[in-house]
């Protein structure tokens, strides 16, 4: 028995080593355009895994994720842009903020913390709601964030957005943080806290009768999810170097919800599988939209094809596999040895 965790640890280290090698090769060989897609996969993994903590594990159907991303992205932007540049672009910034220029990791942590704090503020009133009401209320949060970002011009330049964020994000940051996110969330969901959250999802009345403080656990899940959403939003900002209120709107939230549902919202592995498929597939399909040749057959241009195919995929999955590809299952090495075990029993 005591050997088992060390085997798991070794496999984990092996997995990280393989990932690192793959990233190394990709950084050498892939053109920028493709590297960007690889980075988007990693950022989506961070965002969807953290969304799954609330929506899948705890059963709080939140649509506010893009709002937390925005808080993170703007926080990190204001903390990292060089003072000289701020003086030009954001002349009205208060002095303490105008002079600040933090290293990237510190800004990422601040982004996560501030997003968490936003979650704490809206979580108190909103998390007592159930089901659809909760979803609608979290959408209200998106609206508020957008209005604030658009009107707090001295901090955000309003609808014009902020440009010139330092391009710190690279695949090492992205996948380093993605692996860390998955590790931490995995630890959380297998701890007593995660079990409590799952219990709330499975049967709220029973969970409460067994002594789980429902409101507190929901808030913990919400704030934890928001933390990683804030970090993910900041990574995205420092990848694109431009952020605006428009970018963090419904469509961003719905993209994440879609990935979450397709991958399986009750699973961290589902976040990985979903992010891979849903980031790669649109890019692949887009190549065929302009027409071309496939296996010697000439294809006419079909604009919008990728969106139609993705939407159809979502519908098909909802109908035939509503729990998503992974359901609530996680990847494990014993998956491959399972048949033997079944025979025994």
């Amino acid at each position: 028995m005591p050997r088992k965790p060390s085997a798991t640890t070794l496999r984990g280290i092996g997995g990280v080593a393989v990932l690192a090698a793959a990233l190394f090769v990709m950084n050498l060989t892939l053109p920028d355009y493709y590297l960007r897609i690889v980075n988007l996969i990693g950022i989506n993994i961070i965002l969807v895994a953290s969304l799954n903590l609330t929506n899948g594990f705890t059963g709080i159907f939140s649509l506010g994720h893009a709002g937390f991303m925005a808080v993170g992205a703007y926080t990190s932007a204001l903390l990292t842009i060089a003072p000289a540049q701020k003086a030009l672009a954001l002349p009205q910034l208060p002095l303490w903020l105008a002079g600040i220029s933090l290293p990237f990791p510190a800004a990422l942590v601040a982004a996560g913390l501030l997003a968490s704090f936003a979650a704490l503020l809206i979580g108190f009133p909103v998390l007592r709601l159930r089901g659809h009401y909760l979803a609608v209320a979290t959408m209200g949060f998106l609206v508020i964030i957008r209005v604030v970002l658009t009107n707090a011009e001295s901090f955000t330049r309003g609808a014009r957005g902020i440009s010139g964020l330092p391009v710190f994000t690279n695949s090492w940051w992205v996948f380093g943080i993605a692996v860390l996110t998955l590790y931490l969330l995995r630890k959380l969901v297998t701890s007593a806290y995660g079990r409590g959250m799952i219990a709330i999802r499975e049967n709220t009345v029973a969970a409460e009768a067994l002594g789980i403080p429902i409101a507190r656990y929901r808030l913990i899940a919400f704030c934890t999810g928001a933390f990683f959403a804030g970090v993910g939003g900041a990574l995205l900002g420092h990848l694109m170097s431009v952020i605006s209120p428009n970018f963090f709107s419904y469509s961003q939230t719905f993209l994440l919800v879609e990935i979450s549902i397709i991958g399986g919202c009750g699973s961290l592995t589902g976040a990985v599988v979903g992010s891979l498929i849903m980031t790669l597939l649109p890019e692949i399909l887009r190549n065929f939209e302009g027409g071309g040749e496939l296996f010697g057959i000439a294809l006419p241009p079909m604009y919008g094809l990728s969106q139609i195919i993705l939407a159809s995929l979502l519908i098909v999955i909802i109908i035939f596999r509503p729990q998503g590809i992974m359901g609530t299952k996680e990847f494990s090495w014993s998956m491959f040895g399972k048949k033997r075990e079944l025979k025994k029993g």
Partner: peptide
């Protein structure tokens, strides 16, 4: 009112 989607052991662990 069991937590029917998780293991028997996990049900008890919640308690």
């Amino acid at each position: 009112r069991l937590f029917s989607g998780i293991s028997v052991l996990d049900n008890v662990l919640v308690g």
